[in-house]
Design a binder for these strands. Structure first.
Lengths: 335, 335
DNA sequence: CTGTTAGCGCCTTCAA
DNA sequence: TTGAAGGCGCTAACAG
């Protein structure tokens, strides 16, 4: 059966001091005589005492907890982000409460749980928030940082990589490589990442006097991207280059081209992705892509959250971090 | 600045009832007159009241939180598990507190945080616990369930797939396919998963009058597995089959064989993995493997944790779930 | 530096 | 069914 945990009161009795003396021994900044501290720690060890973080939170009004809302963990890009974020916050004495939410409706119910959980801050990884919910967080003074997603509301902070210039680079690279029938495979229709990458890409083509030859939607999903690829290549004249809005889909494109359509990459079709997930570097793919600075993005988000928590001010800041083109075999210059 | 949240006291005043009446409106099983409840809910909505879960936990002594300890999130197999587990617990009104821990030493410090967090249960995904720590959890009545890892201590529950028979099947399959120089690529040396798979595999070979031709260690890591592959194939006579202890490494083997060594799979070398991660099904790999029942494993772990939390009894149970061979092109019968 | 005294926001007996 | 009262385990003034 569940035993009642040891309390600071019991430690105090054993050590022959007051309960608050025990409390002070476990608060970094409290002043306590070394001698009493030793007595208390001895008693605590003997009883197996651990401070109750719940009780502490109640009075300090700080749970030292960050709620993380994610939409997909099957994309290694976001899995990496989560792992790094967890370690980062752990370093600062914060813990992550994980919530999965696929759509905005689910997010609403999840946010209710988050608000009750008294999380000190909210980190959204590729998940969106309705503006009414965002408003409530701001009203309550809970900082929210969104990574790679945009919300039309003042007060929530946003961290993103420079999707526009990433897309722009891809456009330039493909045109300069001599490609003439360039297709774009979009991610989720309503995601800012996909539309910004697309816009930069289209602008680059336009500046070179070129245009996008075909477009399709892959929803950032493997199977959907495969279907889209089949559609794009179903006619006699097909694209000689595909820019997929992320690596996950680019891999799907390459596999479909090679295995189903008997086409070579990059000889027949050049393929470019976005993210630079580990798979992109594998010998079988050698995917040319645009690297997002995962760690820098998380560092920025961490700083934003912790800063706002410390100051008690929620400020809707926007950070855009530079991306890095990675040229591999799937789309080389001069193909 | 951070506003003080609305309390049940304030709601009570606005509704003209006592604070305990408000409390009862937010407890499912409490009895309350419909009329009062309506008044209270109206007042609560007007003020934007949300019950404070921290305060509730303090008195109910239940945080409705499960601590999850993971070692690697870059292996999609465990990312999938985490996602599914999160949704599963969410359904039951529990939330996950995420902790990353690479080695047993780090686990020790992480466990200290977990114990303080008052988590109602602990789920370990491919992470190990020292027996002293396990002992402490049991002593405190906190149920622990480990997935795919073993600990030499009574009291913690364990869920695993049938690694032995999975390995056994692989051994049979490769011998029956006519392979004669079969190599094994181990995962982490001290992991039960790797050693059980190996044992089943060796037993199968022995029963067929065969033996393992070579062994190497890949630590469940991509780069290490690549290096191991180079070593295995550095001599004139090299293996005609490789059984990698998981898919992640099997993919590394295939890539290294194809890209660096100019060998064909399965014509020159048959390759088999373990897990059946999504990548295994991709056209470029078509990896023959042994599928672990992810959802069944998590369901089992969930049931064990919630059952023990409900009963207040921690019982060290062991569940072994059946695996499913998946034959794809990387190692077919009669090669 | 130490003990005493109030609560943090809520649940839960106990009477009414 | 409802209100009043007493904590849950701890931190944070305040005196001493």
């Amino acid at each position: 059966m569940k035993k009642r945990p040891v309390t600071s009161q019991q430690v105090a009795e054993l050590a022959g001091v007051s309960q608050s003396a025990v409390s002070r021994c476990f608060s970094p900044k409290a002043s306590i005589a070394p001698k009493t501290k030793a007595k208390v720690l001895a008693a605590a060890k003997q009883l197996g005492y651990r401070p109750n973080a719940i009780a502490r939170s109640l009075i300090t009004r700080s749970s030292r907890t960050i709620a993380v809302v994610m939409s997909q963990l099957d994309n290694p890009f976001y899995a990496q982000m989560l792992e790094y974020a967890s370690r980062r916050f752990q370093q600062h004495g914060y813990h992550l409460l994980l919530f999965m939410s696929s759509d905005e409706q689910e997010t609403t119910s999840v946010m209710s749980d988050i608000l009750q959980s008294q999380a000190d801050g909210i980190l959204m990884l590729a998940a969106t928030l309705s503006s009414s919910l965002a408003k409530e967080c701001v009203a309550r003074g809970i900082p929210v940082v969104m990574i790679n997603r945009t919300v039309a509301f003042e007060g929530v902070s946003q961290v993103a990589s420079d999707n526009y210039h990433g897309g722009y680079w891809v456009g330039c690279h493909l045109v300069e490589s001599g490609c003439e029938r360039i297709a774009f495979l979009a991610g989720l229709a309503d995601s800012s990442t996909s539309s910004q990458r697309r816009q930069g890409f289209l602008d680059a083509l336009a500046e070179h006097g070129a245009a996008c030859w075909a477009e399709a939607i892959g929803d950032y999903d493997f199977a959907t991207a495969q279907a889209a690829t089949r559609a794009l290549f179903s006619r006699d004249v097909y694209p000689d280059a595909v820019f997929a809005a992320n690596d996950h889909m680019a891999i799907a494109v390459i596999d479909t081209l090679k295995a189903e359509l008997g086409l070579q990459v990059p000889q027949d079709v050049a393929v470019v992705g976005f993210d630079n997930i580990p798979v992109a570097a594998w010998p079988s793919y050698q995917l040319t892509t645009v690297q997002q600075p995962i760690e820098a993005m998380v560092d920025e988000a961490t700083a934003l959250l912790l800063g706002q928590i410390a100051s008690g001010q929620v400020t809707g800041e926007r950070k855009v971090l530079p991306v890095t083109p990675i040229v591999r075999a799937s789309a080389v210059s001069g193909t």
